[in-house]
Simulated assay, not measured.
Amino acid sequence: MHRVMIHPATYDTVNDSVDRVFDLFPQDLDGKSVMIKPNLLRASQANEGIVTHPAVLAAVVDKVRSFQPKSIVVGDNPGVFSYGANEAAFEQTGLMAAAKGHYRNIGLDAVTVPFNADYMDSVRISRDIIEADVVISLPKFKTHGLTVMTGAVKNSYGFLPGAQKARLHKIAGSPFRFHELIVDVFKLRVPNLFVMDAVVGMQGNGPASPDLRDIGLILAADNAVAMDAVVATMMGLDPGRLRFLQKAAEAGLGSWNLDDIELDGELVRLKDFIIPPLGGEANFNNPDIQSLLESKTRLTPQANPDQCTACGSCVEQCPADALTLIDDLPVVDMDRCVTCFCCQEICPEKAMVLQ
């Protein structure tokens, strides 16, 4: 039986909640490499409720530092609006300061791993995720227009750097298949611990809705399916109707049945909580959304000759060996490019642009 913690909190008292998390879910961190992954959807202000609040990240970083880990890395690969802009997104949201010197751009180094061939034979996943001894996921309590809610399972979609996320959205072709897809990504590296920011949640047509909701909780679990089942219930959803939870349960990743979950705290359904349409079809078939995804999958890195100094950093750092200096200008071979946008991230002159 899995346990889910439901603990009252404000952003001023979140350290107390995080202490409780590690009492309930002890982690062997001494001498270990620890990866902490917040939910960084895109550049925004912390009070917009779009990303994991910096106070939650800072509290978890402080707690992990109180042990004797070999290393700590804080990072994420943001969504479509912040592709190629990890540092800027971390700075604007306040998560850079909250990382307390442990931030790393995890999009710059990725490894290729086998994937579900129904979508793609392989994907690239950030090396820091794959190689960490302990992964701590910090999801946000939010709705999602396509998956109805976004939580512990969906937060792992940020394991994938660059435009792979948009490409997989497009390949999925339907909300049902996208629900299943995010479970396949989640399975690539199942995190060890989940600490959810539910102090201020989001309702309506998330994951970037302006309709915020004061909830006043920190949730925690060592099982993503159990956590998301509790979150779904709080939102007024039947967790058994969410395909990604069904798929995860079928894969042996946990149970969405509340009878199988021990609660540490009180589970209260939020009155009149606003959720998107259950199936997600209205959002998935929205032509504007489809056009956005299509545009992101077609982005090509190109060097601005007025800014490029031919330093070669992008060529050296390209994980796919897709860049070559020709006449002192980096040129991309799109047959090899994996659209991770590392070249844009690494360029000291900010000369690489996406077109």
Rank of each mutant, 00 (worst) to 15 (best):
M5W: 07
G173N: 08
L245K: 10
A58T: 09
I130K: 13
M196I: 10
L219A: 08
V18D: 08
G101F: 14
F273C: 01
G162F: 08
A248E: 08
P305L: 01
A132N: 09
D222G: 07
K187I: 07
L325N: 07
F67N: 14
V73W: 03
M96T: 05
M334G: 11
V74R: 03
D288P: 01
A282N: 14
H2L: 03
L57E: 10
P301D: 08
E87H: 09
P78M: 05
K63E: 11
R124I: 01
A208I: 09
E349A: 11
N205H: 13
G94P: 08
P277Q: 01
P207I: 07
V315E: 10
Q68S: 15
Q45I: 01
A310T: 03
L323G: 07
Q246C: 05
L41R: 06
A132W: 08
D121I: 04
N86S: 08
M120G: 00
G162W: 04
E180T: 13
S33H: 15
N105W: 07
A351K: 08
K271A: 01
I36P: 08
R167P: 00
D23T: 12
D228T: 04
L354Y: 09
P38A: 11
N205D: 09
Q344G: 14
D333V: 11
S291W: 05
G279T: 14
A229V: 04
G145M: 15
H102Y: 15
S126C: 15
K63S: 07
V338W: 14
F141T: 02
S291K: 12
V74L: 14
G280H: 06
H53K: 02
K165Q: 10
G280Y: 06
I125N: 01
L138G: 09
L168R: 11
D214G: 02
S33Y: 07
D12A: 12
L217Y: 05
T297S: 07
P277C: 10
L146A: 12
H102G: 04
G75R: 11
H53Y: 10
S122T: 13
K37R: 09
T309S: 06
F141I: 07
Q307W: 14
R213M: 01
V185L: 12
V148N: 06
M227H: 04
D184A: 13
A43K: 04
S209N: 12
S126W: 09
D327W: 08
V353H: 03
T147H: 06
N205K: 14
N116D: 15
P78L: 05
P139V: 05
S295D: 02
G158I: 05
F194V: 00
R124D: 13
A220M: 02
S122C: 04
E262W: 02
G206Q: 04
R3P: 00
P114M: 00
L108E: 10
G158A: 09
Y83K: 06
K140I: 05
A166S: 15
S71N: 10
M1D: 05
L193I: 11
